[in-house]
Nucleic acid binder design. Structure first.
Length: 426
DNA sequence: TCTGGGGTCCTAGGACCC
DNA sequence: TCTGGGGTCCTAGGACCC
């Protein structure tokens, strides 16, 4: 009976998704570098990397790639071994601006665009061919050309019946590619795609699949659904369906930014065991995370913290807030109490990190009945005033005394905080 | 080349309850 | 102290993504 039941579910699912869709995926080519070159076209054709402020390569032009530079390579190495390469700091304001402009071009053709990341989006083009009096391929060609001509950015695009296949398509030719995958020819593409290249198949799964003699995406797609269910977890079932042309992942055109968690981490060198320093780093991270939470009018119910050792081992602890708050003073003192649970003497640490979890919108927050609310609200209104001061005068006008040490000896750069702010104040 | 920062989703297992 | 079965909720941690 199980079998029959399962089959009927499968059929229902198939019927729902029977109409073949045309899913579009667009991917910026070396996006950060692409924007830098759009800003300053004289760098076109030169080896360029970004990431100076982080100390590792974030993005690299195809010319830089040709020299053997890879993502994540330390900047000192680039400077030492490739003195002709232009090394730039990240300019996240510009990246956000170009990102918005790029997605707006797609919205000239379709209303619902899923902004998957700063340089990638999905859209469902199904049915737009007739009103636009163009084939799907022509629509995509136009989008690509407009991004290229109006923004000076190169993108690679693909269309396919599902999101996972559309990702395969946009990656097929890069840079500046346009690839169409249909149900009929999908197997040809998948047979030539290593399984590790598929969206959602990471290093662990690839290793496991190789032990089962699955080398290509085609090998994976040809397995029975039974086999997938018995050997892998749920997300891989979706990938299997999508590779076989059955749509299970929907386009999700979120209109506003919603976070379910907010994380701030910072690494430092030299690595250290100093309690005082580590607590100061925590304090800084907490201030940043809380500031972002206030910005989006979110309050966490839980806070988790971690220390990462020199050898990349993690120790973590989590704190459930008796009264949800995004006031850093409160969270700092709770973290100080918890600190010894994750800290050991004689171990060198490289990173501290904090995550605000179970975020809920501000207005539903409720405090306890014994005055917790009032003191928390007092903190919140103070911080709102600080936030508006900072907006007026620039970053970091005021910070907690506990953060002071962390503010010393820091390179000033454009970080993700600015990037978030700018998204809102654009 | 000794390796940054910010996210999401899923699962196994424990706590707790009847 | 050992004896059942079954359900829900929560949490920590893993895996993955850009």
């Amino acid at each position: 009976m199980d079998k029959v039941f399962q089959n009927s579910i499968l059929n229902d699912k198939k019927n729902n998704n029977l109409k073949t869709k045309v899913i579009f995926h667009m991917d910026g080519d070396a996006f950060f570098v692409g924007v830098e070159i759009a800003k300053n076209p004289s760098m076109k054709g030169l080896p360029v990397v970004t990431g100076e402020e982080r100390g590792i390569v974030s993005a690299l032009s195809y010319e830089a790639k040709a020299l053997g530079i890879i993502r994540g390579m330390p900047i000192y190495k680039v400077n030492r071994d490739f003195p002709n390469v232009l090394v730039l700091p990240g300019d996240y304001k510009s990246y956000a601006r170009y990102s918005t402009m790029m997605f707006d071009i797609v919205r000239r053709y379709v209303d619902d665009v899923e902004e998957y990341s700063i340089d990638e989006c999905f859209a469902d083009l199904t049915g737009f061919d007739l009103p636009l009096k163009m084939t799907y391929k022509q629509i995509v060609e136009r989008i690509k050309r407009e991004v290229n001509e109006e923004l000076g950015l190169s993108v690679s695009v693909g269309i396919a019946p599902t999101k996972v296949l559309a990702k395969v398509a946009s990656k097929w030719v890069k840079p500046n590619g346009l690839t169409v995958i249909e149900v009929g020819n999908a197997p040809d593409f998948l047979a030539k795609t290593p399984i590790a290249k598929i969206w959602g198949i990471g290093p662990k799964a690839s290793i496991f699949l190789k032990t089962k003699n699955i080398q290509t995406a085609g090998d994976f797609a040809n397995k029975s659904l039974e086999w997938i269910k018995n050997n892998l977890s749920k997300p891989y079932e979706s990938i299997w369906q999508e590779l076989n042309g059955v749509r299970v992942l929907e386009i999700d055109p979120k209109t506003k930014t919603v976070y379910s968690s907010i994380q701030k981490t910072r690494s430092f060198h030299p690595n250290t065991n100093s309690r005082e320093f580590l607590l100061s780093e925590f304090s800084k991270n907490i201030e940043d995370a809380c500031s972002k939470a206030r910005h989006y009018k979110l309050i966490p119910k839980k806070v988790s913290i971690f220390l990462k050792t020199k050898d990349f081992k993690f120790t973590t602890a989590s704190i459930t807030l008796s009264s949800p708050t995004n006031a850093p003073e409160t969270i700092v003192s709770l973290v100080i109490e918890k600190f010894d649970e994750i800290y050991s003497r004689g171990v060198l640490y490289r990173t501290t990190g904090i995550t605000l979890q179970d975020l809920m919108p501000n207005y539903v927050s409720q405090g306890d009945l014994f005055g917790g609310v009032e003191s928390v609200n007092k903190f919140e209104s103070i911080h709102n005033q600080i936030d508006s001061l900072e907006h007026k005068f620039g970053k970091k006008v005021l910070y907690l005394a506990s953060t002071q040490q962390a503010m010393k000896n820091r390179k000033v750069g454009t970080d993700y905080d600015d990037f978030d702010r700018d998204l809102l104040f654009l």
